[in-house]
Write a protein that binds this DNA or RNA. Structure first.
Length: 665
RNA sequence: GGCGGAGUAGCUCAGUUGGUUAGAGCAUGCGGCUCAUAUCCGCAGUGUCGGGGGUUCAAGUCCCUCCUCCGCUACCA
């Protein structure tokens, strides 16, 4: 973000996405909320009116189904789920000013109202959405996806489907293609980081189609005004939380103060909704657009994607119990910049805690306070008469860098700025060797000044750390003798705030060093607790323990796979019965193939084979590949072909005739 | 296939508009201090800055090409 932008901020409104309540909160949710919290706390400390909102997204078919499965009404179900998120945010010290639920009455009223506005502006029209329903699979398919004879394209089903023409309301998204592109050009920092802006622009450049924004297949949602058959598409519903939640209808003065939002913090997976649909909706309703949409990355776990099936789920609550809240918050913000993906590694977490927090910062505080008691009677000594000294200059330079980093939302840079001062102070102590001065009465005054510099610099560090580690920062300030500290930057962002005579306090170790044994003991304690605390509400799969210390037992040389992996691929011989060019596509042939059963395959070989050249040939088909729609036609499998360096292509076939459907492998 | 990004010390990365012996943190080795959470400080390194070619007095930094990885996207499957 440009420095200029940052300087202009008169208010700061930051949002997280509202989290969909079909699952338990995990590391990803916690990360977004913690980042938003840090930024919100920072801006409050800067004296800027701040509003920080998070909440839950509670409508939609999945919730309706999950509720039914749990034997509850949707409302009962979502009430329970919302109560799962709120206490976690408390535990993580999330300082949101409001928690919105899309089932809130005034939210629903806002959505109905904006729907009407979009209708009045001619941006919503009733159209038809032709669907084919497979009763067995309970799935809707589009015409182009079906197999010949209107059969379900699921290879394990292939039953006849029913035609279901559904009426649906559409939003004229196509109309906003150019306005969006214009807006992006005028506001190149609308989407952050920059490379995400490029992605969005190129997507919109590729053309936008009108968006189906109502459903009749389920009822758990906000009804379309004037047409109770339909409920409003969840994303229309969900996105407007950002204005309803600050009082678009219920609290106009708050709304006026904070809208447009400063930044919507989101995960990269929902960028399209926030960077394309959302601004188009707002343009249609005639509301100003948010200043920034910031898409952050995902956390991998020990190099692998986080997934339930891998069992590497990270439960934030367990992290907090094992390592402490502030250490956890610190790690998430320090380890990676806000934007790219990160890797959550146990070893790097322990490393950060032991090196940065325990050895560098914790020990610095500890040795400083201890010297305070030994050498200057446990009170803040008199500062130097001339405040211009190297420590003050260094501290203020770091402070300035920190402010700039934070204003630019570079949280990890801000933390490394702070640590520059931390290690500077450790060096300062070594150079000055206060324990030597203490033996020499003539050095008394010099010793006092060194001690003052140390304590005051530590105070400034605490103030800078407060958005990241609110509890630890306060503990630090307490030990430094600063009772009832004022941390607002206009008061605290200066040199010389600690005053002579303030009484230091001995405190407990701020960040204990962690050794592996301790961690393992704690972890087993957490596991035992879990039986008591878990399953308050929902049928969640038992969450696996923290991060597994032991990676896979055996690792294969790079690039090799197990036989089992290969065996998943089902190869069959296919006899090509018919072939024709796909209309409107240069490279695609549509093949009808006998692989024991008849199936349609779309292959990108039209530049190399004419339809008649391939009919009657045996091909090798990957038979259990997930069906995929190409140019409106569902392809059930893929044929094998070899490509030469220069692009020449030849299909793989059998040596002599063999029955279609024969297994290959 | 198209567009974009990345490939720098064992690991994670920083390197602004091309300009002195290429940096930080962690890990490793040696030395020092004792106020401190066996913590801290100092020193030592190792790098053909992905490969090749080019522009320039001068390139990690610009241009071309190739390789590998990642993101988005598509008439890849």
């Amino acid at each position: 973000m440009e420095r200029k932008t940052a300087m202009k901020r008169e208010s700061f409104y930051i949002s997280t996405p509202i989290y969909y309540v079909n699952g338990e909160p995990h590391l990803g949710h916690a990360y977004t909320s913690i980042v938003a919290d840090v930024l919100a706390r920072y801006h409050r400390q800067s004296g800027i009116p701040t509003f920080f909102m998070t909440g839950t997204d509670e409508h939609g078919q999945k919730v309706e189904e999950a509720a039914r499965a749990a034997g509850k009404t949707p409302k009962e179900f979502t009430d329970g789920m919302a109560e799962l998120f709120k206490p976690l945010w408390k535990e993580l010290n999330i300082s949101n000013d409001h928690f919105i639920r899309t089932t809130d009455e005034d939210h629903e009223a806002v959505v109905a109202e904006v729907w009407k506005k979009m209708t009045d502006n001619g941006d919503i029209y009733l159209g038809e959405y032709e669907d084919f329903y497979c009763v067995h699979d309970e799935t809707f398919w589009k015409e182009g996806q079906l197999l010949e004879g209107h059969l379900c394209p699921n290879p394990w089903c292939r039953r006849p489907v029913e035609k279901r023409k559904e009426k649906s309301y559409f939003f004229r998204l196509s109309k906003y293609q150019q306005p969006l592109l214009d807006y992006y050009r005028e506001h190149p920092d609308f989407v952050l980081p920059e490379y995400r802006m490029n992605e969005v622009t190129s997507f919109v450049n590729g053309g936008l189609q009108d968006l189906s924004i109502s459903r009749t297949s389920f009822s758990w949602g906000i009804p379309v005004p004037g047409d109770a058959e339909h409920v409003i598409y969840v994303w229309v519903d969900a996105l407007f939380n950002y204005v309803s939640g600050i009082g678009y209808k219920s609290d106009r003065s708050r709304y006026e103060k904070f809208w447009p939002a400063t930044v919507h913090l989101i995960g990269k997976d929902i960028l399209r909704f926030h960077a394309i649909y959302w601004p188009a909706f707002l343009m249609s309703v005639g509301l100003p657009l948010p200043q920034h949409v910031y898409a952050h990355g995902f956390w991998n776990i020990e190099g692998q994607k986080m997934s339930k099936s891998l069992g590497n789920w990270i439960n934030p609550r367990e992290m907090v119990q094992t390592f402490g809240l502030d250490a956890f918050r610190y790690y998430l913000l320090r380890e990676i910049p806000l934007g790219p993906d990160g890797d959550f590694m146990r070893s790097s977490l322990l490393n950060r805690i032991n090196s940065d927090l325990a050895n560098d910062l914790g020990n610095l505080l500890s040795r400083s306070v201890s010297m305070g008691f030994k050498f200057v009677s446990g009170v803040v000594p008199q500062p130097a008469s001339e405040p211009d000294n190297q420590v003050a200059r260094k501290a203020l330079a770091v402070y300035a860098a920190y402010r700039e980093s934070m204003d630019d939302l570079k949280t990890n840079k801000a933390l490394s700025d702070i640590w520059e001062l931390v290690s500077y102070l450790n060096r300062y102590i070594d150079e000055k060797a206060p324990w030597v001065m203490a033996r020499d009465a003539s050095k008394k005054r010099e010793l006092e000044i060194v001690m003052y510099n140390l304590l005051e610099a530590l105070r400034l560090i605490s103030v800078m750390l407060k958005p990241f580690m609110p509890d630890s920062a306060l503990k630090m300030l307490q030990q430094l003798g600063y009772e009832n500290p004022d941390c607002d930057f206009d008061v605290a962002g200066r040199w010389g705030v600690l005053s002579e005579g303030m009484k230091l306090q001995k405190g407990s170790v701020l960040f204990p060093r962690i050794d592996i044994e301790t961690v393992e003991n704690k972890e087993s304690a957490v596991t035992e607790n879990k039986n008591e605390t878990a399953n308050i509400e929902k049928p969640a799969a038992p969450a696996p323990l923290a991060v597994s210390a032991a990676p896979a037992e055996k690792t294969l040389p790079e690039g090799l796979i197990e036989y089992d992996d290969f065996a998943k691929v089902q190869l069959k011989v296919g006899l090509v019965l018919e072939a024709e060019k796909v209309e409107g596509a240069d490279k695609l042939l549509k093949l009808k193939v006998d692989t024991g059963e008849e199936r349609t395959i779309v292959a990108g070989i039209a530049l190399h084979y004419k339809p008649e050249q391939i009919v009657g040939k045996n091909i090798i088909v990957v038979a259990n590949l997930k069906p995929r729609k190409l140019r409106g036609i569902v392809s059930n499998g893929m044929l094998l072909a070899a490509t030469q360096k220069d692009g020449k292509l030849a299909i793989v076939t059998t040596d002599g005739p063999i029955e279609g459907g024969s297994r290959v492998g």
